[in-house]
């Protein structure tokens, strides 16, 4: 059965974007993928809670796509969490609307991959930095997948890495749609981009 994918895209400065925008555009071309540009839809942060909850319920895979800002999401995604993930919707005695959906973050980070470890200047691994979101998934009963990250994003364009990353991204989305992605295994790694070949099974032709 095809899975429906929801990409919640939060980028407050899209005219400067070099890495996220190609990912966003590639995803919006794909069938079975709904891409929501949160800053475009709610430029004044007046998030329509009902509409957003409806969207969550009608998709199987939820992705937050954003550039990492101060080791967290851009403000609108936090606002979105605060407003949309209500008690008795996402959690609580009558909650559970998100149960068993797949959740992960597709992020771009300015620092190089080496910076995100105990010895590096960011001191924490990228997965550790995103623990609040992992716990959000846990509390709402979603199946968490390690982040899909592009490091050194400020120079990715000049170094010609964006195209490869975009190809990986669409392959990942396609695998999720066709349920060819090993979600359980993807929860055991620190980040998924280096392991995509092992995590995606080839389509049975």
């Amino acid at each position: 059965m095809t899975q429906k994918v929801l990409v919640l895209y939060a980028h407050p400065s899209q005219h400067r974007s070099e890495a996220n925008q190609p990912l966003y555009e590639a995803a919006s071309q794909m069938p079975h993928v709904t891409v929501v540009d949160l800053y475009a839809e709610y430029p004044t942060f007046n998030i329509n809670i009902d509409r957003e909850q409806q969207r969550l319920m009608s998709h199987d895979v939820i992705i937050f796509q954003f550039p990492l800002y101060w080791y967290s999401t851009p403000a609108i995604l936090k606002e979105w969490q605060d407003l949309v993930l209500e008690y008795n919707f996402a959690y609580g005695s009558r909650g559970g609307a998100l149960k068993n959906k797949v959740f992960f973050c597709a992020i771009t980070a300015g620092g190089k991959a080496e910076a995100y470890r105990a010895e590096g200047f960011n001191h924490f691994k990228i997965r550790e930095i995103l623990y609040p979101l992992e716990q959000m998934a846990s509390l709402t009963g979603m199946r968490y997948v390690a982040p899909f990250a592009l490091f050194g994003a400020r120079t990715a364009k000049e170094e010609g890495r964006v195209q490869h990353h975009t190809q990986q991204w669409t392959a990942l989305l396609q695998a999720l749609i066709e349920e060819r992605f090993d979600v359980a295994k993807a929860n055991e790694v620190g980040k998924i981009a280096p392991f995509l070949e092992e995590l995606i099974t080839e389509p049975a032709s």
């Binding site: 809670i49 407003l83 209500e86």
Partner: peptide, 11 residues
């Protein structure tokens, strides 16, 4: 106000 409502006490 909805989104900013805290969950009930003891939740």
């Amino acid at each position: 106000e909805r989104g900013w409502t805290p969950p009930p006490k003891g939740y």
